[in-house]
């Protein structure tokens, strides 16, 4: 990292030199460059991956970024699920590779059955864009191990189809197994069942959430925090967490 780049708020994770994290671009993806920048700010190398390429280029982890892949035609994430890169992601995720799905990426993960439930239109039918407070409920996943349980964090939320739904049995399972990773704090922004903002698989390597950590990674461009306007960098901890989990894997 050059001296002119903003210093990440978190201490760089020792031993993570050379960690490579892939970011998949689908037709209609919007936030791939922001995700790549967040990865670089955390100290890792960002590797661009293309949806039509079946190779993940030996990356150590993968981010499915936000956007409107395939225009959200059919259902959000439904067509992307069948991209060649996703076949590789499903295999790698089952082998334990860390995978983070953000917003549309979360929708792709549910369509690919790596995570349970689904997303439907926000209950109020409006697009929502705001700085969103969440409570960290599980600080043991590959992407959240540098948070602490019960910690309140704030990152941007922006979506139309953000209402997390699943049947009661699935919701009870998620709660019982500690797989609810984030819960909305304060007013529920989209009608998600049980205020769920993000979940994980049973192994803790696959995490999906609707809000956008990659938009809260450097001072001057994030949400408001106690340090002042636009100073929030809570999103960076997702990316330093995964580096930490790669070191200790």
């Amino acid at each position: 990292m050059s001296a002119t780049e903003p210093t990440p708020a978190a201490t760089p994770v020792p031993g993570t030199d050379g960690a490579r994290i892939g970011v998949i671009t689908f037709p209609g993806t919007l936030d791939d460059r922001d995700a790549a920048r967040a990865i670089r700010l955390s100290g890792a190398e960002a590797v661009s991956l293309w949806h039509a390429d079946a190779s993940l280029q030996d990356v150590d982890a993968v981010v499915l970024p936000g956007g409107f892949s395939y225009g959200d035609y059919l259902r959000a994430g439904a067509i992307s699920r069948f991209a060649p890169a996703m076949t590789a992601v499903v295999d790698a995720a089952k082998g334990g590779m860390p995978v983070l799905g953000i917003c549309n990426g979360f929708q792709v993960l549910t369509e690919a059955h790596l995570l349970p439930g689904s997303m439907v239109k926000n209950d109020h039918l409006h697009f929502v864009c705001r700085e969103q407070s969440m409570i960290v409920e599980n600080a043991r996943t590959a992407w959240t191990n540098e948070f602490r349980r019960g910690q309140q964090i704030k990152i941007p939320l922006k979506n139309q189809d953000g209402q997390f739904v699943a049947d009661e049995r699935t919701l009870d399972e998620l709660e019982g197994e500690g797989r609810v990773v984030f819960r909305y704090d304060g007013e529920n922004p989209n009608g998600s069942r049980r205020d769920i903002a993000g979940i994980t698989n049973d192994r803790g390597n696959v995490v999906g959430l609707m809000p956008h950590p990659e938009h809260a990674v450097e001072p001057g461009f994030g949400p408001a925090s106690a340090a002042g306007p636009r100073s929030g960098v809570d999103g960076l901890t997702f990316f330093t967490s995964v580096l930490s989990s790669l070191v200790h894997a």
Binding site: L74, I79, F82, T110
Partner: peptide, 8 residues
Amino acid sequence: TLLSNPVI
């Protein structure tokens, strides 16, 4: 498989 999502 594609046209519907059995979850919803």
